[in-house]
């Protein structure tokens, strides 16, 4: 038994799955490149956009997808005040399991800023029964999804700092649903067709429709806009310190380049004695 599992693991991992992926890749189109305010060395999150994205998450995604690596207090990074964060937490659709209380009983209460986002379902099996699959947690999903760039792009990306594959993919996925799968593709029972999903068969029905979320800032209430906004929010959720990172990065770069210049001239001076 063990032997056969191990053999299967190796066989699958080393050859089979790789080959399957290769076939899936050929039929899956590359997500279109989007423009992101946070791309590049000086990129910053667009606070209005990530707040809209959070609204989309709250009103659409959060019924199935958890955000369990984040606490409500983290939302201050979106630009919300402490009072707003407290309000969002206490109004949250799901309550927090707490306890035991003095009577030794578990109880439910409204969330507080210090709480993690509550799970939308009690356990994975329950989710599978309810949704036909386990909806992945969204905390780091913008970094957990990608697509293959291929030669020579993966080398060029080092210099252009392109690393928005994850958000491009999520945006594409939101808009990649098609009513009928292409000829030759048969969908398993209960699955949808999405051309950007590897393999094409996805358990999640198209989550967004035009006008589903009401924006207060006058942004277009379209699937295209929702998709971009929620992707930007998920990038923030996955990488909340990105702005600090890039800001410090610039300071470090300036320092290192000046330092390298000084070292170069010092080196020249020192060596001039022996040359």
């Amino acid at each position: 038994m063990l032997r056969s599992i191990l053999a299967a693991v190796l066989a699958v991992s080393l050859a089979g799955a790789a080959a399957a992926q290769e076939h899936a890749d050929h039929s899956t189109p590359q997500p279109p490149r989007q423009k992101w305010s946070f791309a590049g060395p000086f990129g910053k999150y667009d606070r209005a956009q990530i707040q809209r994205g959070f609204q989309v998450y709250k009103e659409v995604c959060s019924t199935c997808h958890g955000l369990n690596l984040l606490s409500f207090r983290h939302l201050s990074g979106l630009g919300y005040s402490d009072a707003q964060v407290t309000q969002i937490a206490s109004d949250w659709l799901f309550k927090v399991q707490d306890g035991p209380n003095d009577q030794g009983e578990m109880f439910e209460r409204a969330a507080r800023p210090a709480d993690r986002f509550p799970q939308p379902w009690p356990n994975e099996n329950a989710a599978r029964v309810r949704y036909n699959a386990v909806p992945p947690d969204m905390s780091v999903i913008a970094k957990a999804r990608t697509y293959e760039r291929g030669l020579p792009w993966f080398i060029i990306d080092i210099f252009t700092q392109f690393q928005e594959q994850g958000v491009d993919y999520i945006t594409a996925l939101m808009t990649g649903y098609e009513d009928k799968p292409p000829a030759g593709v048969t969908l398993p029972q209960g699955l949808m067709y999405n051309k950007y999903f590897p393999g094409g068969a996805i358990a999640m029905p198209s989550p967004l429709t035009d006008g589903r979320v009401t924006y207060s800032d006058g942004s277009p209430q379209t699937v295209a806009q929702y998709s971009k906004d929620v992707s930007a929010f998920l990038m923030w959720a996955a990488e909340p310190h990105m702005e600090t990172r890039k800001r410090i990065g610039f300071q470090v770069m300036v320092f290192l380049i000046i330092f390298a210049g000084l070292m170069y001239f010092t080196k020249k001076r020192v060596w001039s004695a022996v040359h």
Binding site: D157, I158, Q161, Q165, R245, K246, G249, L256
Partner: peptide
């Protein structure tokens, strides 16, 4: 300088998305 380029600007480039 090369090291900092990756750390500050492309910290996940050398890793694999699946590890998230």
């Amino acid at each position: 300088i090369v090291y900092a380029w990756f750390v500050f600007y492309m910290p996940n480039y050398l890793g694999h998305a699946d590890n998230y």
